[in-house]
Design a protein around this nucleic acid. Structure first.
Lengths: 219, 219
DNA sequence: AATTATTTTTAGACCAATCTAAAAATATAG
DNA sequence: CTATATTTTTAGATTGGTCTAAAAATAATT
């Protein structure tokens, strides 16, 4: 249907619009794809000719109905494969992204649906990000960044805002895997660092940066 | 490492040399890839520059050590994914080939090895074809075409020589899945057709063509 | 409002993979 | 051993995706 490159552009544009809102600029797209603005312009033209993007020169791009649908489906495939790689093949959560980047381009819808069933219709991937269903509907995740929580609250790790290996491995070392539960003991006003206590009794001090990027559910 | 096109050429060349023996001609390669001889020549040059093929103008091509290794690894991945698609996702044996054609290009060796373990290190794929191990060694399949069997013998289906959907679906209808056991009741000298009896008592008449393409193990 | 800076697009070139048409090498036939 | 047929290679063009450099449009500054 579409080339891998086209699909990757589409995913980047989808993400930009999702986070920045409104329209995606040529420069933002080029940066996300780690290429030149000239190349991005070329691809934007191609994708808008295929009715995946709405495009006005110098005014940025938006996604059409079909573009949104295609991008959503890519996200769905990517996250389902991530679940597969972790749950079934035993990979760690910082290893699965690259492989999923390749697997998401396998086009068969029947494969996607059977994989979904095989995995028991998961609603969230190993990073806590929601998996859209076959009709493109998203489960809302009731999660907030840790730093918004008050001292004394108990919380459970449900996801991350920073998907880098460095962060994920650091969390592993801290014992903060997906599903880990802890209590906030105190907050230092000086640098917004947090002291927490895990279920097994170990205490940890978390920087403001961790507090920003760790997503939790209040218990 | 290599492009999907390069990998597909390599696989075709591997298969040609495996069956025809010796060297693969430009025309044979072009036919297998459903393209022109000119395109095949181009790709042959590219692949021999990358040390995957031995090539002398007008004299056909052979595989280098590295070429054989790469092609074997592709066959390994393809067949492992076929096992996955059938055993874990429940696809029928005539549906899995196309999807495996895409999945085999996923490059991670760690993924291949974990998939192999997840599937319990299968030695044969759903069509009875052997799966080479990580070092490129093949399990020998002790299977012969049904037509070579004498009347009165009992046999078990272990594979097929014809991989078309038409044949596989026909076998399904006859009740001759992988692992099905039966006895040869009689052979008609006139057209080499065979009458067999399955374990559940049903009798079937098989044409010579089926006898040629159905691979079995003697019980 | 005029100048400067930034963003975006165009122009022209390149590489991988493909094609058609024609040329060169090899094989076959009389 | 020529003449013909077949196979293979070369030449030149095309498409998708990329690049650099330069031009055009928009935004920011004074």
């Amino acid at each position: 249907m579409f080339s891998q490159t086209e699909e990757n552009y589409l995913k980047s544009i989808f993400k930009i619009i999702e986070t920045a809102g409104g329209t995606a600029t040529t420069n933002a797209i080029a940066a996300a794809m780690q290429t030149s603005a000239a190349s991005a312009t070329d691809m934007i033209k191609r994708l808008s000719e295929k009715n995946l993007l709405t495009y006005e020169k110098y005014r940025g791009v938006g996604l059409t109905e079909q573009g949104t649908q295609t991008a959503t489906n890519l996200v769905r495939r990517h996250r389902l494969w991530e679940v597969f790689l972790m749950e079934k093949l035993g990979f760690a959560w910082d290893e699965v992204h690259e492989m999923a980047e390749e697997l998401e381009h396998i086009s068969s819808d029947r494969l996607t649906e059977r994989l979904d069933a095989f995995l028991d219709f998961p609603k969230f991937d190993p990073h806590g990000d929601p998996i859209p269903d076959a009709d493109g509907r998203w489960a809302s995740r009731e999660q907030i960044p840790l730093f918004q929580l008050a001292v004394g609250k108990k919380a459970t790790v449900t996801g991350v805002a920073d998907h880098t290996s460095a962060f994920l491995q650091y969390l592993d070392r801290l014992g903060l895997n997906l599903g880990a539960t802890f209590e906030i003991l105190e907050r230092a006003d000086y640098d917004n660092s947090l002291k927490i206590k895990l279920l097994n009794g170990t205490e940890q001090t978390l920087s403001d940066k961790v507090g920003q990027n760790l997503l939790v559910k209040i218990n």
